[in-house]
């Protein structure tokens, strides 16, 4: 990342075929249009058709092949047709079960994730700001975060039984590390020039935290949160699979043990959808929070 003047554009895969902003020094003072239009060649009806094909073709082929395979007589008992899975899915989850099994799981996920975020960011800021405390605690943290979080499930069952506390604790303990460590990195990386600027203009205390430190560290914090979210889903499921009497993970294992195969698949599909939806939601939030960061990076790359 060179710190050259930003008005100059270097050719990149994405803008080589668009007229690039002029690199003439006299143009320096003109605002550089940075509305990033990706692949301008894909406009018009043909482009739309191509885009639709990009999105739908491969999934359609995959499902089609799977369907053709499973529809044969004598195809595996364990691989029901998409139609059978779909029916089971509608019957299972468009009913009370959704509120009994799925919503509480999601609630625990949300609580655990939120707590982990709060603790991780809070502690991360403290550690990031104080080199002494950081040096003292770091080796212990390095060890604690290296513990694969699922091994805590059996322990938490012994300590807290199989109730919500256990499951939430497991989620919190597993998720807090990537958030914490990324926050520390982000806070440490706050630009000293910006930090000095803030001091000169009397920006201190909570404003400094809110306006400077948290915002400046937000790319790293978001990266930590993204990892933590994926981990939280895994931990939610396995804490329910391991020992539980309710929840989505429990339901899926029950289906498997009773050989209710289409239902088991329906559970897996729901889990997949939850994973997909949560990660899409996260991306949406991230796009809002880090819009400036993407632009800044693009500007530095000279796009």
């Amino acid at each position: 990342m060179s710190r050259t003047t930003l008005g100059q554009a270097q050719p990149t895969p994405e803008n080589t075929h668009t007229p690039s902003p002029k690199a003439d020094p006299t143009e320096q003072e003109s605002p550089v249009a940075r509305t990033r239009r990706r692949r301008p060649g894909n406009r018009g009806p043909a482009g739309a058709a191509l885009r639709t094909a990009h999105v739908l073709l491969l999934p359609a082929v995959l499902i089609g092949v799977y369907w053709a395979f499973t529809a044969q007589p004598g195809a595996g008992f364990y691989t029901p047709t998409p139609a059978a899975i779909g029916t089971a899915f509608v019957e299972l989850w468009f009913s009370d079960r959704f509120f009994v099994d799925v919503l509480p799981s999601l609630g625990r996920l949300a609580v655990g994730f939120a707590l982990a975020a709060l603790i991780g960011v809070g502690l991360g800021v403290l550690l990031g700001l104080d080199a002494r405390v950081r040096a003292t605690i770091e080796p212990v943290l390095e060890f604690l975060r290296a513990i694969p979080p699922p091994v805590l499930v059996p322990l938490m069952i012994m300590l807290a039984g199989i109730d919500d506390t256990m499951k939430i604790t497991v989620i919190v303990f597993g998720c807090v590390w990537p958030i914490l460590l990324n926050t520390v990195e982000g806070v440490r990386a706050v630009d000293p020039v910006l930090s000095d600027t803030a001091r000169c203009y009397g920006i201190t205390g909570t404003t400094r935290l809110r306006v400077l430190i948290l915002r400046s560290a937000s790319p790293q914090i978001m990266a930590g949160l993204r990892l933590a979210l994926a981990l939280a889903i895994i931990l939610m499921v396995i804490s329910e699979m391991f020992a539980s009497s309710s929840g989505l993970g429990f339901a899926i294992v029950q289906f498997q043990r009773t050989f209710a195969i289409p239902e088991m698949w329906a559970g897996m599909v729901l889990l997949g959808i939850i994973g997909f939806v949560l990660s899409s939601l996260f991306e949406l939030v991230e796009g809002r929070v880090l819009g400036w960061y993407r632009g800044l990076r693009a500007a530095h790359r000279g796009e």
Partner: peptide, 12 residues
Amino acid sequence: FLRPIPSVALIP
């Protein structure tokens, strides 16, 4: 679509 699917969904 496949990437965010938690791998533990494959356990059963």
